[in-house]
């Protein structure tokens, strides 16, 4: 019984990890890749480790396994947020099929001089970085991403 439960969590986790790998290779721009990698990777490995916790069924080992889940679910989204912010900041282009970008026109997009992280680092590097803060992101499309016309069907089942 315990093994069946653990085994099904293993299979689920393996499938999600597979999908994370496929997603990161197949998605067209950095942000969609981040979505695929963060979500599928975190839940996939989370499922695997939950299976391990069920499998060992021992106070110490299961607690350690649950601790790994806790760390993953706390750190993975924070890491994704920081990479996404940095990527947007240096002007990594969005996919040509992107329909709306409210951040581009927003007045508060640059990471300002009073930013916490920048202040912590200090020095000449911080000066140099803040000078180039308010440049607009690169409007040219990605080199590797050929433009596609986003035609979508209205009866898409996953559409909200």
């Amino acid at each position: 019984m315990k093994d069946i439960l653990a085994g099904s969590f293993f299979i689920l986790g393996g499938l999600f990890s597979l999908l994370a790998g496929l997603g990161i290779l197949r998605m067209p721009d950095s942000f969609t890749r981040m979505q695929a990698a963060t979500k599928a990777g975190t839940l996939g490995v989370g499922c695997l480790i939950l299976g391990v916790a069920i499998y060992f069924a021992d106070l110490g080992d299961s607690t350690r396994a649950l601790l790994v889940i806790g760390f993953l679910f706390l750190t993975a989204p924070v890491a994704a947020y920081i990479i996404a912010r940095a990527a947007y900041h240096i002007g990594v282009p969005l996919w040509s099929g992107t329909v709306i970008d409210e951040l581009k026109d927003s007045p508060d997009r640059g990471i300002g001089e009073d930013d916490q992280i920048m202040r912590g680092a200090g020095g000449a590097g911080a000066q140099k970085a803040s000078a180039s803060d308010h440049t607009t992101p690169n409007p040219e499309p990605a080199t590797g991403d050929e433009p596609r016309t986003p035609d979508h069907d209205p009866d898409d089942p996953t559409d909200r």
Binding site: A20, G41, L48
Partner: peptide
């Protein structure tokens, strides 16, 4: 590349 490295590390944990 950073995202790819992050995913490699996550999958290594699994």
């Amino acid at each position: 590349r950073v995202v790819a490295l992050d995913l490699i590390a996550t999958l290594s944990v699994g």
